Simulated assay, not measured.
Amino acid sequence: MRLINRNGALAYGLALLVLVLDQISKHWILFVFDLPARISEKVAGPFHLTMVWNQGVSFGLMRADQDLGRWLLVAFSLVVAAALAVWARKSERRLMAAALGLVMGGAVGNAIDRARFGAVVDFIDVSRLYFPWVFNIADAAITVGVILLLLDSLRKESRA
């Protein structure tokens, strides 16, 4: 009996890819590019790098300014990622597996920030396109993953 199917491996691989890209980008923003000292930097057109320490959940909702809230959010993120990992192990559809992988990687990436820094490192700023939030790769992965899960739920089940 296999513990994980091919789609589960896809989910885990995608989660790892998101996690690695997220953490590398945050390391670069904080310690190489030193964005905190600059606050905001124009990159091209409407794209800016803007430093924001997000103490809330996605897009700054439900702030967790106290240590208890911070650690509850870390624990919640890790529990969600673990539950999704169990679900992904035997995912029958590639779209669902990809969606679960994106959400898992993003959840763990932001949990690492909360544990290390007490807040999530956000820096991608496209507010000139009327999108008012600053976000990171983990946030983008979670958002795309949730959208893919919704799309997958609208698919009709195939009769095998």
Rank of each mutant, 00 (worst) to 15 (best):
M1W: 11
M1I: 09
R2V: 12
R2C: 06
R2H: 11
I4H: 03
R6V: 11
R6F: 12
N7G: 06
G8P: 04
L14H: 07
L14Q: 04
L16N: 05
L17Q: 03
L17F: 10
V18F: 03
V20A: 10
L21Y: 00
D22I: 02
Q23V: 09
I24Q: 10
I24L: 15
S25V: 01
S25I: 05
S25C: 09
F31C: 07
F31A: 08
F31E: 06
V32D: 12
D34Q: 08
L35Q: 03
R38K: 13
R38I: 08
I39S: 10
I39K: 12
I39D: 08
K42N: 14
A44F: 14
A44Q: 09
G45V: 04
P46Q: 07
P46W: 05
F47V: 13
H48N: 15
L49E: 03
L49W: 13
L49K: 02
M51T: 01
V52R: 00
W53E: 14
W53V: 05
W53M: 07
N54C: 07
N54W: 02
G56Y: 01
G56I: 04
V57L: 08
S58I: 09
F59W: 15
F59S: 04
F59G: 02
L61E: 09
L61D: 04
L61T: 14
R63H: 12
A64D: 05
Q66F: 11
Q66D: 15
Q66T: 14
L68T: 13
L68A: 13
R70Q: 12
R70V: 05
L72W: 12
A75V: 12
S77H: 06
S77W: 02
L78V: 08
V79P: 01
V79N: 02
A82K: 12
A83M: 14
A83F: 15
L84P: 04
L84M: 15
A85D: 05
V86G: 13
A88P: 02
A88I: 11
R89S: 15
R89D: 08
K90N: 15
S91E: 15
E92M: 10
R94G: 14
R94P: 13
L95H: 13
A97I: 08
A97K: 05
A98G: 15
A98V: 13
G101D: 06
M104H: 03
A107P: 06
A107N: 01
V108N: 01
V108T: 07
G109N: 06
A111P: 02
I112F: 03
D113Q: 05
R114I: 02
A115Q: 13
R116T: 14
R116F: 09
G118A: 05
A119S: 10
D122N: 01
F123D: 04
I124F: 00
D125S: 00
R128K: 12
R128W: 07
R128L: 14
Y130E: 11
F131L: 14
W133Q: 08
W133T: 08
W133M: 07
W133F: 11
V134P: 08
N136L: 01
I137G: 01
A140I: 00
A140Q: 03
V144N: 00
V146C: 01
I147R: 02
L148C: 14
L149T: 05
L150Y: 15
L151T: 09
D152Y: 13
D152A: 15
S153M: 13
R155V: 09
E157G: 09
S158F: 09
R159W: 11
